[in-house]
Design a protein around this nucleic acid. Structure first.
Lengths: 238, 238
DNA sequence: CCAGTTCGCAAACATCGTTCGCGAACATCG
DNA sequence: CGATGTTCGCGAACGATGTTTGCGAACTGG
C-alpha cells in the first residue's frame, strides 16, 4: 500500500486510539511509530509560525513562508499538519503556555481578573491572537489547562456547568475585544475620523458634530478593562 | 492622459472635495461626472455580494463570483471599488439600513437594549457580520446613523465623549460575540466535545471530568443576552 | 538484508486579488 | 455633425495562495 494515509493508526494498538475523531489535531499522534523518522516537530513548526505572525501579522503566515523559515519545502509541513487552519490552532493553543495559574484564593472574582489581565498581556504580545480567539476558538492542551483552572476557581460557585462555560467564553472573548479595540485605536480610528469630520461638516447628525467639537479637551477615560470585565462577569455569574 | 485614475477629482470643482482622504470609500464619489456612464452601481454590487455571503459565507465572496452573479467580468468591479476590502466595508455598512431607530424614550438603558436586540437579529440574518464587526469595524453612512442615534439616546448622560464611543464599540462587539458564540454552538462545540471527552478520560483535569459528567441533566441557562449586556453597559457607563 | 512504512519535497492544480491595456461608449464643445 | 476628452467593460496576465500527487530516500522491525 503506497502511503495511503496513516494506516498504522487503525491497527488497534490501543482501542481508544481507533475511536478517535480525526477532525481534531490534538487527537492525532504527532509521529508515526514506524518508518522514517520525522526531522521536525509540531512545536518547532508552531514556534516558527508564531514568531512570523508576531513580526508580520497573521496573513504573512503562509505555508511557504513558514517552510522557508525552517529551511524545508512547503509540502513537507503537511506531514505535521493536515491544513493551514490546523497550524493556526496550534499557534493559538501554544500561547496558553504563557499563563501563570496560581492556586485559587477563595475570591473567584479576583482570581478571574488575574487570568483576564494575563490574557490581555498575552494578546498584546501576539497581536494576531484576538482575531483567532474570537473567530476560531481552539481548545488544545494548554487551553484545557486554563479552562480547568477557571473551573477550579469557580468550584464552589453555585452556577451550573453551562453558565460556567459561558463565563469562560465571555472572559476570553471580551478580553480579545478590548485588545482588538485598543490596537485599532491608532489605525482604524484615523480612517474613521476623516469620514466623521466630513459627516460633522455636512450638518445632519448634530450629536456627532457636537461630539467631535468637544473631543480634544476631553480627558481620556482611563482603563475600563477591570471595571467592565468585573461587571460583565457578575452579569453572567451571580 | 490615458486613464491615469480619476484625474477629474483633482480639478477643484469643489475645494472640499480636493481635501478628501481617498483611503475611505465613503468619501470617493461613486460615479464620474463625465465620460461613459457606468452600467451598475455600488448598491447593486453590494446587494449581490450580501446575498452571496448570506448563502455561502464570507469566503465565497470573491471578485470573480460576485462579478459572475452580475454577469460582468471580475475586473469591472474595480471601477466601483478600489479593493475587495472596500466591498466588504460596503456590505457591512449596508446592513445598517435594517435598523429601526425610534425616538429616545428617556430610559437610555432600555433604548440601548432595543438597539442591541436589533443588532442581534441582523447578525443572525447575516451570519458573516459578526466577524466583520469585530475584525474590521466599518463606519459608513448607515453606521453613522446608528451612532448618531446612540449618541442621541445618551444625550443627557453625564459621561464624556470618549466613554460614549467606547460604549458604542462594546455594544456592537459584545453583541457580535454573542451571536458568534451561539452560531459556533452547533459547529465548534462538537469538535471541542470530542477532545474534551478524551481529556476527561485521561484523568487529569478533574473539574472538566466532573463538568462533563454533570452536563446532560443541566438545564439550559436561558438567554443571558439582555442581562449580560445591561450589566456591561452599566459597567462602562454610570 | 529486505520488506514495510513514513518522510521530504519538486511540480502541478485550482483559485484568489489585482493590474494592464485597449476598444467601445458617452457628453461636451466647436 | 464630428472631434475630443474621459470613463467604462473586460480579456488576459501576474504573483501568490492552500493543497495534492508522486516518487526517491531514509529508516526499522523481522
Amino acid at each position: 500500500m503506497p502511503d495511503g494515509g496513516s494506516a498504522w493508526r487503525r491497527q488497534g494498538l490501543e482501542v481508544a486510539v481507533a475511536e478517535q475523531e480525526e477532525s481534531v489535531i490534538w487527537l492525532r499522534p504527532e509521529h508515526a511509530p514506524v518508518g522514517r523518522p520525522a526531522e521536525r516537530s509540531r512545536a518547532e513548526i508552531t514556534a516558527a509560525a508564531v514568531e512570523l505572525a508576531d513580526r508580520e501579522g497573521l496573513e504573512a503566515v503562509s505555508m511557504r513562508r513558514v517552510a522557508a523559515i525552517l529551511g524545508t519545502g512547503a509540502a513537507s509541513l503537511y506531514r505535521y499538519v493536515a491544513t493551514r487552519d490546523d497550524l493556526l490552532d496550534l499557534m493559538a493553543d501554544s500561547t496558553g503556555s504563557e499563563y501563570d495559574l496560581p492556586a485559587p484564593s477563595g475570591d473567584w472574582q479576583a482570581d478571574l481578573l488575574v487570568i483576564a489581565r494575563q490574557a490581555r498581556q498575552i494578546m498584546r504580545r501576539h497581536r494576531w491572537l484576538p482575531a483567532m480567539v474570537i473567530g476560531r476558538p481552539a481548545l488544545g492542551p494548554h487551553g484545557v489547562d486554563v479552562l480547568e483552572h477557571v473551573l477550579d476557581v469557580l468550584a464552589d460557585h453555585p452556577a451550573g456547568p453551562a453558565r460556567k462555560l459561558e463565563a469562560f467564553a465571555i472572559l476570553s472573548g471580551l478580553t480579545a475585544l478590548f485588545v482588538q479595540n485598543e490596537m485599532a485605536a491608532a489605525d482604524t480610528a484615523t480612517r474613521h475620523a476623516a469620514y466623521l469630520r466630513h459627516v460633522a461638516a455636512a450638518g445632519d447628525h448634530p450629536r456627532i458634530t457636537a461630539l467631535l467639537a468637544a473631543s480634544p479637551p476631553d480627558g481620556n477615560p482611563g482603563d475600563q478593562f477591570d471595571a467592565v470585565l468585573a461587571r460583565t462577569l457578575t452579569g453572567v455569574l451571580g
